[in-house]
Nucleic acid binder design. Structure first.
Length: 776
DNA sequence: CAGTGAGCGAGCTTCCGCTTGACTT
């Protein structure tokens, strides 16, 4: 039996460290927290100084009993959980739960997994820091009190099973607020002037822009007209060197953002893939808020840069964290071995690894150097000057390996594609010649909706949530139905373009798509109701600064300057009072709206959340006639639906005639509008409004779908008409009655017999079905 | 892939932060 038992939080870490320490040390993992508050409402006795009841959850029993056994047999137990609030608490819980001895227990910390760091830690053990433990308890108790007192208020005033909490409720609020900003926004149009000049040599073209925009079309046209007889001269020419520096290596949050922008990963996917890379030993720990690199890493990067790119490309850099709540228990995310530029195997793992490698390497490289040239071009008939910008890269530096993207995912600006291009050689006073000029109507843009990753970024800025909870929080607010991640089509919008070519001005109207969204977060009606209720009654909790405020107090507790139960008392008193009065006096939360009266009948048209979701109701239960109901469509919200849109919902489903002796019905389902005929579904083409479907167009769609289905069939089995082989999206498969059967790899489609089909279908049946996703 | 739109009411739901697991498609 080993003389020393060293306990860390992560099993992968344990394996690495064991390699550093040799035979006298056995290194084991606690797999995170081993103890938590009991799951019931009586976990905290608020009338008795917040006494807590802890338990070892069922899934942790095995780990605890193994550690207990090993601890008993060891001479010394080294508690090496992370150096932060949660880590300190884990050490304390281990100490208590394993029944450790003061004499044989040592607490050590390190924030990088390198041999020297760990040996140094072992030489300088300390005791458990109870101030830090108390700060963690205050954090844990406050979160439980907030969550478990607030949620039941929602069950009573809104709907059962809902939830609220210090983190998730603010995340929802951000999304609701943003949606309202977008709804309130009205786009303003203005004309942007862009000119193409040449130097006299027709090949030397360059672009210039007018720094200001014209609100009125007439002003823009006037400008173009003035330019017809004008002379153009380079009034001034300025050349300035400029530099760009690399970004810091990844933290959890920046990794999630870049993987979202560059690879299109959801934050959950990024974390799952990173976890695999970590467990395989390719990268350092992926849940971190630190941008710091260990000396070992700095040396590894330096060596790699010097040998792969040359000495001039290396520049040693230490980064400082910008986020306020950072606890920096780990290193930044970096490759374990910098000489490994890429990985084989799984595509997602390879791409994420390369991203991490490039970012970490680039962070230790030299600046990129540019020369920026600005030419101002005078117009003889006007006061204004046009401006041409050119940029030449003198030294690529870190850009050799990495280019950071930005969050601006708006529609590509058609006129900007030549920005920062090369300018031809120019001199001050030189005359240049107009090739063409355009005035294009451009619109101001509303604030961007959040993606999962940009929401994480915002939460981090506010100091809300931790690296280990960003991804789960994003999932929670979606699982609760407060928020949906969706792509939505945009709407066409006309814009005007005036063009000056060859001395004449022409005008035309073009169309662009605006407001299209891909994988963005939208609030739901229930999200809006819950948010508004919380903002009205518990503004203190959903305030964006609430976490920052309590974090400051947790810090004071950690420094021994404040007593943790005193802090909780001063918070809980007023909070609990608010819960009581709200429960007693507040009205049920609703966002019901009255839209008007139905033409003809005068019946009341209203919209609210019903048992099956948001709906429109015409009439009231007191009327002789029963009220009529219709559900809102995806993308429609109670807050924004118009009277006309609400009435339109009652026009479907609609019978559109007969075909082959059976009725055809147009309706809108979960997957969009469709025609139902003879128990089969036919989706409508995107551009066709379901209200416009006629008998003829419906028949056309049905015939078209049948034809396409026919083309998909590769083989039929003569007399056995219940089976056929079709070409699917992922290659051929067998349709066997209602069952889809996979064709085993390496089987040629031509050799399959009907007996094979029956056999494979039976095998497929036996396999357990995949569980439904999301909430129960 | 529809439309549906209650009212007896037991007992349930819920937080945030640490960690991975054991299953398939």
């Amino acid at each position: 039996m080993a003389k020393n038992l060293l306990i860390v939080e992560s099993p992968a870490k344990a394996k690495t460290i064991e390699g550093y320490l040799g035979k006298d040390f056995m290194v084991k993992s606690s797999y995170g927290h081993i103890r938590d508050l009991v799951k019931t409402d009586d976990a905290i006795d608020t009338s008795n100084n917040f006494t807590q009841r802890y338990e070892v959850p069922a899934e942790k029993k095995a780990v605890v009993s193994e550690l207990k056994k090993l601890a008993k047999a060891a001479d010394t137990v080294w508690l090496a959980s992370d150096e932060d609030r949660e880590g300190e608490a884990i050490s304390w819980h281990l100490y208590e739960t394993l029944g450790l001895d003061d004499e044989k227990t040592k607490r050590i910390v390190f924030h990088e997994i390198t041999k020297p760091a760990i040996l140094r830690a072992i030489e300088t053990p300390r005791g458990i820091d109870f101030n830090l433990v108390n700060a963690q308890q205050a954090r844990r108790v406050l979160d439980r009190l907030v969550g478990f007192e607030l949620s039941p208020v929602l069950w009573k005033k809104v709907k059962p099973s809902l939830s609220a909490g210090r983190v998730q409720s603010v995340a929802v609020r951000l999304i609701v607020d943003r949606e309202r900003e977008i709804n309130r926004f009205t786009a303003e149009a203005a004309f942007k002037i862009v000119a193409i000049f040449h130097t006299g040599n027709a090949k030397e073209l360059f672009k210039a822009e007018l720094p200001k925009r014209f609100v009125e079309a007439a002003e823009a046209e006037r400008f173009l007209a003035d330019c017809i007889p004008a002379d153009f001269v380079i009034n001034s020419l300025e050349t300035k060197p400029s530099k760009r520096s690399p970004a810091a290596p990844f933290t959890t949050s920046t990794l999630q953002q870049e993987a979202s922008r560059k690879l299109g990963f959801s934050v959950a996917r990024t974390m799952a893939v990173a976890q695999r890379l970590y467990e395989a030993g390719h990268i350092s720990y992926m849940r971190t808020d630190s941008v710091n690199l260990s000396d070992t890493a700095l040396q590894g990067a330096e060596q790699e840069i010097r040998s792969a790119y040359g000495d001039t490309y290396h520049k040693r850099r230490q980064y400082r964290t910008k986020s306020a709540g950072a606890q920096e228990a780990h290193e930044a995310i970096r490759p374990t071995y910098f000489d490994q530029h890429t990985l084989g195997g799984d595509n997602a793992e390879r791409r994420l690894y390369e991203l991490i490698w490039k970012r970490a390497i680039a962070s230790q490289m030299s600046e990129a150097e540019f020369e920026k040239t600005t030419a101002k071009i005078g117009v003889s008939t006007r006061q204004e000057e046009l401006v041409a910008n050119g940029e030449v890269m003198r030294f690529d530096g870190f850009l050799k390996v990495y280019f950071e993207s930005t969050d601006d995912e708006h529609e590509p600006n058609l006129d900007n594609d030549t920005d920062n291009a090369l300018l031809p050689p120019l001199t001050a006073g030189q005359q240049v010649h107009l090739n063409r000029m355009s005035a294009t109507e451009r619109f101001s843009r509303p604030p961007a909706r959040y993606t999962e990753a940009s929401l994480v970024k915002k939460l981090e800025e506010l100091g809300i949530g931790r690296p280990s909870t960003y991804a789960p929080t994003i999932s929670t607010i979606q699982n609760r139905g407060y928020v949906v991640k969706e792509s939505r089509d945009g709407k066409p919008r006309d814009y005007r373009v005036l063009e000056l070519v060859g001395g004449t001005i022409s005008s035309q109207t073009k169309t662009e798509t605006t407001g299209a969204e891909k994988a963005k977060l939208f609030p739901t009606d229930i999200g809006v109701v819950v948010n508004d209720f919380l903002v009205e009654h518990f503004n203190g909790i959903v305030d964006f600064n609430f976490t920052a405020k309590v974090e400051k107090e947790f810090d004071e507790i950690a420094q021994g300057m404040k007593e943790w139960t005193a802090m909780l008392h001063s918070f809980y008193g007023p909070f609990h009072q608010e819960v009581e009065t709200t429960t007693k006096h507040a009205d049920r939360a609703t966002n019901e709206r009255e839209l008007g009266e139905e033409p003809g009948t005068g019946k009341r048209v209203s919209v609210r959340i019903g048992r099956f979701g948001p709906m429109v109701q015409i009439g009231s239960p007191d009327d002789e006639e029963k009220p009529r109901y219709a559900s809102l469509r995806p993308g429609q919200m109670i807050e924004t639906i118009t009277f006309e849109e609400a009435l339109d919902l009652f026009k479907l489903p609609k019978k559109v005639g007969e075909f082959e002796g059976k009725e055809m019905t147009v309706a809108v389902g979960r997957f969009g509008p469709y025609i139902r005929h003879n128990n089969a579904f036919y989706s409508l083409p995107k551009e066709l409004d379901p209200l416009d479907v006629t008998t003829d167009s419906a028949i056309e769609i049905i015939k078209d779908k049948r034809q396409k289905d026919k083309e998909k069939i590769i083989r039929v089995f003569e007399e056995n008409t219940d089976a056929r082989i079709e070409n699917g999206r992922w290659g051929p498969f067998i349709r066997f009655g209602k069952q889809n059967v996979k064709i085993p790899k390496g089987t040629s489609v031509d050799n399959i017999t009907y007996e094979d089909v029956v056999k494979w279908a039976a095998e497929d049946e036996k396999k357990p079905k995949k569980k439904a996703r999301g909430k129960k």
